[in-house]
Design a protein around this nucleic acid. Sequence first.
DNA 1: AGGAAGATCTACT
DNA 2: GTAGATCTTCCTA
Length: 189
Amino acid sequence: MDILDQDFYNQDASIVAKQLLGKYLIRVYNNNIISGRIVETEAYYGEQDPPSRAYKGYNNFAKLMWDTPGKIFIYMVHAHWLLNIVTMPIGIPSAVLIRAIEPLEGLDFMEVNRTKKGKNVSNGPGKLTKAMLIDKSFDGIMATNINGDLFIKNSYEKVRIKSSHRIGVRKDLKRKLRFFISDNIFVSK
DNA sequence: AGGAAGATCTACT
DNA sequence: GTAGATCTTCCTA
C-alpha cells in the first residue's frame, strides 16, 4: 500500500476532500500504530470562502494554507485541535479538514485517550485528534512522509460518497463542501 | 483585555 | 434530540 504524494494534494480542495474518503490516516506513537479509515471531510478555500481561516487574506494564523500541498495544518477551535491537510498549488489558500475516521488499529489506545467507546471514539474532528494524540506539534509537517509520526496512505477501495453543507459554519457557500461515506456510523451527527 | 472559533459534553425533555 | 455551558488558543483593539 503506497503513500499519497504531494501531487495528490496539489488539486482542487473539493477533489482532494472527496478522494481522501476511504484512505488511511496513520499515527505512529512510541512504535505503536494507530490507524483509521477517513470517512468524513470538508473543503475550505480562501478569500471567497467566509468560514475559511484564509478569508481575510494572508495572516500569520492561517499562513500554512498558502503553503505546500500535503502539509498538515492544525488549529484549535473551542478547545479542540482540528486536523487539516493543505491542498492546491503554493500560493492558493485551501485545505481539507478531516472530520471523522473509522478506527482500524489501536482501538484500545484511542478508547483510553477519549474515555469513550464505540462511535464516540472518533466521529468528530476534535474527537479523532484526541483519540490519536494529535496536537499543534504536528503543525507544518508533511503528511507524505511514510517515516513520520503522522501520514496518509492510499487505498483503492471504492466508496459511496455523499455530500452536504459544512457543519457548524456561520455562512456557508452555495456549493456543498462536506463529503462523507454513506452509511458509515463514524460519520458525525 | 476581549471576543471569536469549522466542537463536544452533559443533562434534560 | 435539543439546549446550554464550557473547553483553549490566537487575533485585534
